[in-house]
Design a protein around this nucleic acid. Structure first.
Lengths: 236, 236
DNA sequence: TGCATTTTCTGACGAAGCGTCAAATAACAG
DNA sequence: CTGTTATTTGACGCTTCGTCAGAAAATGCA
């Protein structure tokens, strides 16, 4: 049963085509290098037609960010479905975040652009809501794991702290870490040589700080990571 | 003894005047709202003269970010000079970061703009180096406190982890946290109501995770924060 | 099929901003 | 006072954005 008319399908496909052409342009030439005229030329449609799909060039970047946001939810869901104790599933979430960061580097560029207030103002609230919903989904996936840990007494929440607030800390640490890694080329100059490993160590330390069992000294982290890569993400 | 000729002083003053006019314009109207023509009009100099000072409009934003970066170093230095055990001085650093985030909200906007690759390419390496040097100073100030903690046996570094790598974790957590607070308007929707407090709790948990003495359960955090605000930052 | 109506597409156009540079002005030196 | 150098100016060329009147295509109907 076709829910979409042929016309709608054509529109969808063209939208896809535009995004497909835009992505490498933005990555290669940055926010300023890419222009609507050049996209129009690349996809062989007139500028007016492009503007029928996207009300401004920022809207295209927003759509690209929405695409990658959805990918992250997928990765997180895969990680959360790993059949293991809560603490190990958190390792899987950490791996998901790392895979996302290395696989979809673009996303961070797009995100920074669309979050600039001047860009945000002129872009559709609706598409922002899509991204926000992905954010909420990721949050609730991870908060679910925290709840499981509490239910099985691996973790006792501090007074006045919700599972979501625990997740907020890990989120801040991870996103902050990767954002510094991408921005600051001087990390090795500062004495940090394996930043990705260091981020992982810190997330472990943070969970240890909340006394989340098993503590990281009480299990073989490398082995769990390897296990997760094999069973969850089918790598190696 | 005058090291600067009257002419040089005039140039300095004009530069200051330009930056002073630009800052609120950028904050109010964002990266796109502000233009060189409008700045020129505001300071009553011609566009050509503005371009004698700053090679492009992005360079102005870079200069503004450099100003605030220096302010952060000041705050961190003040915090590090607090005469107390290392762990309490870390509380002071946390307060410095919080004061910086609330006092110089602009900085985060400027930083995001200048870090965009397309912006970075066209701005002076020299001014970027100034900002990087501020970053290195902050890092070494905090790493110094970590070293003090190690020296007085309050902290034992994990194998293969340097003081700088410890700082990296706290830096990631704090900057990531404040960046989420600024960007994501949906935090309360996600169940996080006092995010600043939560960031503080997480930094404490992270240090607890490394078993940095005294553990946060073994001293009165609120009291130390209050003490720091009074003695170091002269507030309250 | 042929014609009317609606939808979609097009690219020329106005507006605005960037960065330049030849000419005007000011500063200075003799 | 005049010749030389340094600084300032704003008009100009160029690029890009986003629009919109008219062209082209699709659709409906007799």
């Amino acid at each position: 049963m076709d829910l979409l008319s042929p016309k709608q399908i054509e529109i969808r496909e063209r939208e896809e085509k535009i995004l497909l052409a835009a992505r490498p342009m933005i990555v290669r030439e940055g926010y300023h290098g890419f222009s609507m005229d050049r996209i129009a030329e690349a996809v062989k449609y007139s500028k007016g037609t492009i503007y029928n799909h996207f009300s401004c060039k920022e809207e295209i970047i927003l759509a690209l960010a929405a695409q990658t946001s959805a990918k992250r939810v997928e990765l997180f869901q895969r990680a959360a479905d790993y059949r293991a104790i809560a603490r190990y599933r958190m390792v899987a979430i950490g791996q998901a975040a790392q895979i996302f960061a290395s696989e979809y580097t673009d996303h961070f560029l797009f995100e920074e652009i669309i979050m600039l207030p001047s860009v945000r103002e002129k872009t559709s609230e609706k598409r922002h809501a899509v991204i926000q919903s992905c954010e909420i989904q990721c949050m609730s996936i991870v908060a679910g794991i925290v709840r499981d840990a509490v239910a099985s007494s691996d973790l006792v929440l501090p007074d006045n702290m919700s599972p979501e607030e625990i997740v907020f800390g890990l989120w801040a640490l991870t996103s902050g870490g990767y954002s510094i890694i991408l921005k600051s080329e001087s990390l090795s100059l500062l004495g940090i040589n394996k930043p990705v490993q260091t981020v992982r160590d810190h997330t472990a330390a943070l969970m240890d700080g909340y006394d989340w069992r098993p503590l990281s000294k009480d299990f073989d982290m490398d082995q769990v990571v390897q296990q997760v890569n094999q069973k969850v993400f089918l790598n190696g």
